[in-house]
Amino acid sequence: MLKELIELGKSVVIAIIAAFLIITFVFETVSVDGHSMDPTLNNKDRLIVEKVSYYFRAPKTGDIVVIKYPANPKEKFIKRVIGVGGDRIKIENGNLYVNDVLKKESYILEPMLGDFDEVTVPENTVFVMGDNRNNSRDSRFSDVGFVDYKMVVGRAALRIYPFNRMGSLSSVVN
């Protein structure tokens, strides 16, 4: 009996350690909270965030990423990478320009309001925005700003809920 309890205890400890390692280094699930990524992602969507690819490559333009909110790293935001190190970003008359090229963004909710003076994205950081540009706390605001790679949790890879919208997010237009 005691031997069986010890074996059971070992199995539980191993399972806990394995779960911790998977959640820490491989993937986790997150829930979308809010409307900043409408129409691509909706409030209460459940996503699988994979973390492995960013051990081998940096985030790239178009990736939908989960970041730690720089002003409160306990909070997480879901945004789209608009620019990477060296890119120049500006918004003029509601149009987004990256390196002086007008971006055609079929995935945004509605035309943007306002302008944003040109900035150059520092190396090892990304510039992120929500797809609902008029309702998104993102890199245009000083409390978010340029997001250091260390604050990028991972890439949103798969929507698992709602079931009628389940599928890969890599198929979402970048």
Rank of each mutant, 00 (worst) to 15 (best):
D87P: 13
G86L: 08
Y55L: 08
Y69P: 06
R165L: 09
M151G: 08
V98P: 12
R88Q: 12
P59E: 02
P111R: 06
F146L: 04
P59Y: 04
R137C: 05
K104H: 14
D115P: 01
D117L: 15
M112P: 03
V126W: 11
A15R: 05
F163I: 15
I48Q: 13
S170G: 13
R155Y: 02
I160F: 03
S31K: 10
T29K: 06
M37I: 02
P73C: 04
Y97G: 10
K76M: 07
I23N: 12
R57C: 09
P59Q: 06
D148Y: 02
I108Q: 04
L96M: 13
G167Q: 04
S31N: 04
A156G: 00
R88N: 04
F116W: 05
V121T: 07
T120I: 15
P162G: 09
S53H: 03
A71S: 12
D131T: 13
R165P: 02
E118Q: 12
I91T: 07
K90L: 03
M129Q: 13
N132G: 08
K76E: 06
K51M: 10
K76L: 13
G154Y: 11
R80Y: 12
F56A: 14
T29H: 03
D117S: 15
M112S: 14
K103N: 02
G85V: 09
Y55R: 14
G34F: 01
I23E: 11
D45K: 01
S168T: 00
S31F: 02
G130L: 04
I14V: 10
I91V: 15
E118H: 07
V98G: 14
V126T: 03
E75P: 07
A58H: 15
E4V: 07
G167C: 06
I22G: 07
A157M: 13
V153A: 03
D143V: 11
F27I: 00
F20K: 09
I23L: 13
R155H: 08
N134Q: 06
K150N: 10
F141P: 10
N132R: 08
A58F: 14
V144T: 00
T125A: 14
Y54S: 07
G167S: 06
R80S: 14
A19L: 11
V172H: 11
V173F: 15
T61D: 14
V13F: 08
L158I: 14
N174S: 09
S36D: 07
Y54R: 05
